[in-house]
């Protein structure tokens, strides 16, 4: 049996009586890219801080590659790299100095080849000997990625890595994340850009009000919870939307020639088209649109707000 890269068991955390993380459990397999999604205040960063060691665990346990992150923290922290959401830098040092120091904090000697590779891949070379305070926001983000990877962690945690960064850096970052994932590093990421999560992640957990409200592979989540919208352009206008179409929603526009039908992801389109023909509608054209993760996310977190 493979030891999970990360196993979280009944993890909870309170701040001054307010529950930030409420009894969450999930595992991440080695080599996965796992997305932890949720609105602001859902408890994602609190969970990540407990995994990384920034926060104490309220209750429950966390195992990283089979080692308990409380009892055996010297082992687990060596295996984890964290890129924090907030920009965390030490203004006294240059990028080069800080990267060398950071490897040492983890108990590893400076690996020059790896350090230079990170510097090169993240475009830090022209700024290598600048002190942190003189770097732009984008450069600081790039440095933080390099810092999280300098000790070659087996589990990389990226907490909102693309928040407030330009398109170029976003592409650089995701390309690099894919590359290191292919080389064997397990990735846990949170992002507000759901399109990125959809494209990057093998599996997703959606958090709301401190709880995990969905935990599926990205494909399953999109298939099971996603919807499709069929837009039917009619040759002849109709006055009323047909009934008994077995759709989740039916909408007819004012002209009477545009019929918008919403289907669940698993509902076959063929059945619907057959039904439309049986009714005798004259169809001029058909468009199909699939709902993405963003709609699923909004739908789930909105439901969570009503009934937390």
């Amino acid at each position: 049996m493979t030891i999970p890269a990360l196993a979280i068991h009944n993890l909870s955390k309170e701040f001054d009586g307010a529950i930030a993380v409420n009894d969450i459990s999930f595992t991440i397999e080695p080599g996965e890219i796992f997305g932890l999604l949720g609105p602001n205040g859902a408890g994602k960063s609190t969970a990540i801080n407990m995994i990384g060691g920034v926060s104490r665990i309220g209750s429950g346990s966390i195992e990283i590659f089979g080692a308990d992150n409380q009892k055996d923290y010297r082992t687990t922290r060596r295996m984890v790299g964290v890129m924090h959401q907030e920009i965390v830098i030490d203004n006294f040092f240059t990028i080069d100095q800080a990267l060398r120091l950071h490897a040492g904090y983890y108990g590893f000697r400076d690996d020059e080849a790896w350090r230079l590779q990170l510097i090169d891949r993240l475009g830090l070379k022209p700024h290598l000997h600048k002190v942190m305070i003189k770097l732009s926001g984008g450069m600081k983000r790039r440095f933080m990625i390099a810092k999280a990877l300098i000790h070659k962690p087996r589990l990389l945690i990226l907490d909102e890595p693309t928040a407030g960064v330009d398109v170029e850096l976003r592409h650089t970052l995701w390309d690099f994340v894919r590359e290191i994932n292919q080389q064997g590093t397990t990735i846990l990421l949170t992002t507000h850009y759901l399109e990125e999560a959809e494209q990057m992640c093998d599996r997703l957990a959606i958090m709301n009000h401190g709880k995990v409200i969905a935990l599926e592979s990205t494909k399953t989540l999109l298939q099971e919870l996603g919807t499709r919208t069929i837009i039917v352009h009619l040759q002849e206008p109709i006055t009323q939307a047909p009934e008994n179409l077995c759709c989740q929603a039916t909408d007819l526009d004012k002209t009477g020639t545009l019929l918008q039908l919403t289907l669940s992801a698993s509902q076959p389109t063929g059945d619907l088209l057959q039904r439309l023909c049986e009714i005798g509608l004259s169809i001029a054209d058909i468009e199909t649109r699939s709902a993405g993760l963003e709609e699923i996310f909004l739908q789930m977190t909105k439901a969570g707000r009503v009934e937390p």
């Binding site: 010297r74 060596r78 040492g104 108990g107 000697r109 690996d111 000790h151 290191i180 590093t185």
Partner: peptide, 18 residues
């Protein structure tokens, strides 16, 4: 990238680095 097993961990190095 997972060459961590090739890297030797030095328990005194975190102190020395800090």
């Amino acid at each position: 990238m997972n060459q961590q097993s090739d890297n030797t961990y030095h328990s005194w190095l975190p102190f020395y680095t800090l």
